[in-house]
Design a protein around this nucleic acid. Structure first.
Lengths: 203, 203, 203, 203
DNA sequence: GATGAATGAGACTTCATTCAT
DNA sequence: GATGAATGAAGTCTCATTCAT
């Protein structure tokens, strides 16, 4: 209500909101939505529970915003890496970024991976985008590397994204943490496979 | 399993448990543990809630058993496919099986993918095994295909598993469902990549 | 149902019933009715839960019978001690018996002490008797010792009974277990008090 | 209800907790912990069940606090009566107080008497103190009356406490309620006994 | 802007009891 | 006589949400 007539309706972040954001990012990123209560977030943020509702209206809305924020962060970095004119290097950089991000916010990967499910995902509308935003970037880069039939593009990007996310996630869980280099190489075998089986864009 | 030799139908053995199993498999497979209540499962199975506790003791125990059952199912099929003497065909068969399984029990993939997280997963002990059981089979097959350094094996298998699971999962969600063939190919690019970058076992 | 036409309807105790009795006595005597489940009793007795209901009809009925049994045991011993022609010795013997009984079945004392309460005691009808049976015996003995006004009798017996039961109970809990002799003496001060303030039956 | 029309209703300070306290005191004091459900307490207090958990965290914690409160009440009164310079009068006053207290909160006596049992009483830590706090006061008073050997003190106090509690309790149950005077006298026979068998402090 | 007391739906679990075999 | 499977009422507790201040 009372939406500004024009200009950016930009949510003016109060101090409380910022603290809630930080706390959520940490808690959600570490344990996932279901395992974190509003009480806990409010407490870690040092505000009252009511403040959560004052600022976000609902838990789901808050999670959505946090998730969106995380997604923006990741996508921004990926897009930047994608800008590298050499597609192979771009891809390796992107994979590196993904692995590092997952290392830092383990649960985000989990959420993104898993919440694809819910037919009518509660706050899935803010989520699916991660997948599509990333794969569309991936497709662009792949297009600069090999010549793909239209129907091959999305599946290829999906496979790479899945391999990266899952591998990264396993690294954060497994005892015998594969060293990062090995993980990156494994993820990028897909790319080698594409190169081996498709015509290159630049000879 | 493996009903007594003596042939006695002995059917008395817990029809309720079977019904609970079926209901759980379906509900859990479709919505995940947190989104399903014991009430709901009992109701779908057509038994009282108490029966769940009579048969399983707790919700977690039940989920654990269902998950284990699903894992056994998948792993058994995969192992069978892995037996194919030609490793490339074995891998394609395995990928096909994975994709089909996920199609049938969408949430299982999600659970397996996502529940890697919980540091001390509640019923994770029955879960992580899926990952390790599958990757160890994968490693065996890969070993019959290309020559891999020890430290490359697990990451390679992990990447393939992740790509397969995630791609399969997306197929069940996405609107523009990639056709299965395209998905399989995309998943198997990793394998092509391995072949392209490593020495083959058999020339 | 199916009560024998005549003769004593004596409950013919089956083997199962005996085992249930033994188990109940032990469990109830150690933890009290509320803290013991029918499952537990049946298990300790090595019979099925259904057998409890076949033999007793209900948990309360079973508890009642067990409690009654314990009461009979105690009362029988007390009555025997009360037979001692010298009232003072009889009283000391009775106190000794009480203390020893409580030592052996701590929870019985507790139940008897505490379950006086329930206005409509669930199985209180089998219980209150302990108190009245004991105090009536006590009154008889006291009558042989001192001359009491009618209205003094019951309160005096009650006080002695309470002191004995409670003291005995504390001995089983307390760390610094008072030695039995000291406890007995303390309980019997009431008797000395009676002697000091009332006319003796025999000079 | 009965919300003050104006002025600062400032009563805001947990009126609910107070009401819960009152209701608990009454219900628990009348029927004991096991026979009272949280629902019932909440209902009698006119608050929601959730409020109980908001204020106390758990049923046990609430019971603990209520019991502690009751104990404090009783002990405070007893200590005051114990201050009477004439020990015999002090003792009679203490007995009177105990009897009256039990009359008012019948179940408290029961709980205190009975919960001595549980080896590791759930909330017994708040309970046992009643016994020791009272007996230590009793010992002090007795010391001002007669000369007792160290090892006689605790048992004597225990016997008196037991006699008083139990006698008082029986008065609230029994049909032929002994008149209070008779009960008091009976309880105090122990004291007479002590006087008759020990050297007096003051001749 | 913010708070914290209060709520109530709903989750999991226990357990005395019933009944067909 | 005995059993084991099944039940369902009742209990404790959690947590997202509301609202007066």
């Amino acid at each position: 209500m009372t939406t500004p007539p024009s200009a950016r309706p930009r949510v003016r972040a109060t101090a409380s909101k910022k603290r809630l954001f930080a706390a959520s990012m940490q808690l959600l990123g570490a344990r996932g939505p279901n395992a974190v209560s509003v009480d806990e977030i409010a407490q870690m943020a040092g505000v009252s529970k009511g403040t959560v509702y004052y600022n976000f209206g609902s838990k789901d809305e808050m999670i959505g915003q946090v998730l969106e924020f995380g997604a923006d962060m990741l996508v921004a970095e990926l897009d930047q890496a994608a800008a590298n004119p050499k597609p192979r290097e771009a891809l390796r950089a992107m994979a590196t970024i993904a692995v590092e991000f997952v290392e830092k916010y383990p649960s985000f990967a989990q959420i993104w991976i898993s919440e694809q499910l819910r037919p009518e995902s509660d706050w899935g509308d803010q989520i699916t985008p991660v997948y599509s935003r990333v794969t569309s970037t991936l497709v662009e880069v792949l297009d600069r590397l090999v010549i793909l039939a239209p129907e091959e593009k999305q599946p290829a990007a999906t496979a790479i994204f899945g391999a990266a996310l899952f591998s990264a996630r396993m690294r954060t869980v497994s005892d015998n943490v594969a060293d990062r280099e090995a993980t990156l190489n494994a993820v990028l075998y897909s790319v080698e496979g594409l190169l081996a089986t498709h015509q290159h864009v630049v000879p």
